[in-house]
């Protein structure tokens, strides 16, 4: 078995250690004896969406985000078809905002891809800090770090999780991220997947199922260190330490 993971515009969207997520997808396949190919797509290169099983879209500054959006729009409906046909996509931070209709900043309105009927508004006061989420999709809490000026309004979509600690999509609500078909979109940046192996396996399972039909459940891995890193953050919050 083999999955191809496309990393979209790593030269533009590479804030906050995003490539850790791509590494995680690849290694957790390899550790199970499944091939994981990573293809880097740079601006202007054509993407054959038939040939990729998973896509990662990371975060960048507004300037880079705008350019990435333009590249994706130039490719027509390819990404939309990929998503609608159950292609696995992880979008983080700026990538998450880009999937929506628009992102309004004080300087400009960045046109989104409109794959999801959501929008983002910039407001003063960045939402920065450790985040802990409870999600019915996962046994362990989802832990990570957020750092964004935009507030994303997701309407009736299913959120990724309920915020136990942190801000999430907006500073008013209690929800973070979004799940749609096989898309996971979230503000939790950087090494989201390494520390939340369940989220990684959730994505891998869906990609394997889409490609190979009813693939048997993924083989377990020795995730002791992963769980310690995850539990350390959850534990620290429980103890009431500064986060």
């Amino acid at each position: 078995m083999k999955l191809t993971i496309g990393h979209l515009y790593p030269n533009l969207l590479n804030l906050y250690g995003d490539r850790g997520n791509v590494k995680c997808l690849q290694r957790r396949l390899q550790w199970r004896g499944i091939e994981g190919d990573v293809v880097l797509f740079s601006g202007g290169s054509r993407i054959d969406f038939q040939k990729v099983d998973m896509l990662f879209l990371g975060g960048g500054s507004d300037r880079e985000q705008e350019l990435a959006g333009r590249y994706l729009r130039e490719m027509g409906g390819g990404l939309r078809d990929f998503v609608e046909s159950g292609g696995v996509l992880l979008a983080v931070c700026g990538g998450y905002q880009l999937l929506g209709n628009y992102y309004r900043t004080p300087k400009a309105v960045i046109e989104g891809l409109g794959l999801l009927d959501i929008y983002t508004e910039w407001k003063p006061g960045r939402l920065v800090g450790d985040v802990i989420l409870d999600s019915p999709a996962f046994r362990s809490p989802v832990v990570g770090f957020e750092n964004h000026g935009g507030r994303t309004y997701i309407g009736a979509y299913t959120p990724l999780g309920r915020v136990r600690r942190g801000y999430g999509n907006t500073d008013e609500g209690e929800w973070e991220g979004l799940l749609y078909k096989n898309v996971v979109a979230t503000y939790l940046h950087g090494p989201l997947l390494p520390k939340n192996p369940e989220v990684c396996d959730y994505l891998l399972e869906r990609a394997l199922k889409r490609k190979y039909g009813n693939a048997a459940g993924l083989q377990g891995l020795p995730d002791e260190l992963e769980h310690r890193a995850n539990e350390y953050m959850a534990e620290r919050y429980r103890k009431g330490e500064r986060m």
Partner: peptide, 22 residues
């Protein structure tokens, strides 16, 4: 630099700060 199997070295500023092009 642009290694094919990994995200490559991390660099800021792939984009011109005047016109927004690469």
């Amino acid at each position: 630099e642009g290694g094919q199997n990994d995200g490559g070295a991390v660099r800021e500023n792939a984009v011109c700060r005047l016109c927004g092009e690469p």
